[in-house]
Nucleic acid binder design. Structure first.
Length: 220
DNA sequence: GACCAGGCACATC
DNA sequence: GATGTGCATGGT
C-alpha cells in the first residue's frame, strides 16, 4: 500500500470509529479564531470556560474585543491559562482582523490562502498551527493543520521522520491527499481525537482505530 | 504531587 | 541554526 492509500485507509478507519466530528467546536468564525489562540498548549476544556466568560460578558465579537482593556480580557480568559500572554496575543490578532477586514470573516475567507497565511503569521503570538487553524476552520481554506498529535501519530506509524518540522509535515499531507477543505477539516479532527484517546506520550494504542496499521513499538 | 494539555516568542549558546 | 525557558490554569 502506498502512502496516499495508507493515509486514506487511516482516514476511513478513524471515520468508522468516531463518526462525523463536526469541527471546529465554535458557533462563528470569530469564535473559532479566538479558540485557536486560547487553545495554544492548553486543553480544550479550559478554553471552553474562557469562551463562556467572553460570551457572558458580551465581548465575543471583533469590535467589542478590540475595544476591551487588555487587563479585563486577561481576567475573562484566566481559566485558559497563560492569560497574560494570551490576552496580548488575542488583542494583537483582533487589532489586525479589524484593521485588515473590519472584523469580517467572509471578506477574509475570500482571500487566496497563500498570501493570507503570511499575513496572519505576521501577527505576534500567532504561529503556524494557530494560523492554519484559523485559515482552515475559521475561513474554510484548504490548509492542513499540523499539531503535536499529528506529529506523534505519523511518527509512530513511520509515515514521517520524528525530526521533520512543521512545514515538512504539512507538505506531506499536501503531497498525498487531495487539497479539499472538508477532508482536511475531518482528518485533523480525527488525529486530535486519536491523540487524546490513544496516543499519549506514555499511554498508547489499546483500542486505537489505527492499531492495525504498521507502527513502531518504542516511544516517540 | 507529577505530568500533561489542539504553542509561541525570545534568550542564549 | 539548534536548544532551552517562561508563560499558568485545571484535569488525571
Amino acid at each position: 500500500m502506498d502512502t496516499a492509500a495508507t493515509l486514506t485507509a487511516m482516514h476511513q478507519a478513524m471515520g468508522r470509529h468516531f463518526g462525523p466530528l463536526h469541527w471546529w467546536p465554535g458557533e462563528t468564525p470569530f469564535e473559532v479564531m479566538v479558540g485557536a489562540i486560547l487553545t495554544q498548549n492548553t486543553s480544550w476544556k479550559n478554553v471552553e470556560k474562557a469562551i463562556g466568560n467572553l460570551k457572558a460578558a458580551g465581548v465575543l465579537a471583533p469590535h467589542a474585543l478590540d475595544a476591551l482593556e487588555r487587563q479585563a480580557l486577561a481576567e475573562l480568559i484566566r481559566p485558559a491559562g497563560y492569560y497574560n500572554v494570551k490576552s496580548l496575543r488575542l488583542k494583537a490578532y483582533v487589532r489586525w482582523f479589524v484593521a485588515r477586514f473590519d472584523g469580517d470573516a467572509a471578506a477574509m475567507a475570500a482571500c487566496d490562502w497563500r498570501g493570507l497565511r503570511e499575513e496572519v503569521l505576521s501577527v505576534k503570538g500567532v504561529g503556524r498551527e494557530t494560523a492554519d487553524s484559523i485559515l482552515l476552520y475559521g475561513c474554510g481554506l484548504p490548509v492542513f493543520v499540523v499539531d503535536k498529535y499529528t506529529w506523534r501519530i505519523l511518527s509512530r506509524h513511520l509515515l514521517i521522520n520524528p525530526e521533520d518540522d512543521y512545514e515538512a509535515i504539512q507538505q506531506f499531507f499536501r503531497d498525498h491527499l487531495p487539497a479539499e477543505v472538508a477532508l482536511y477539516n475531518e482528518y485533523h479532527a480525527q488525529l486530535v481525537n486519536v491523540g487524546k484517546a490513544f496516543c499519549r506520550p506514555t499511554a498508547r494504542c489499546a483500542g486505537c482505530p489505527l492499531e492495525s496499521f504498521e507502527h513502531r513499538a518504542d516511544e516517540v
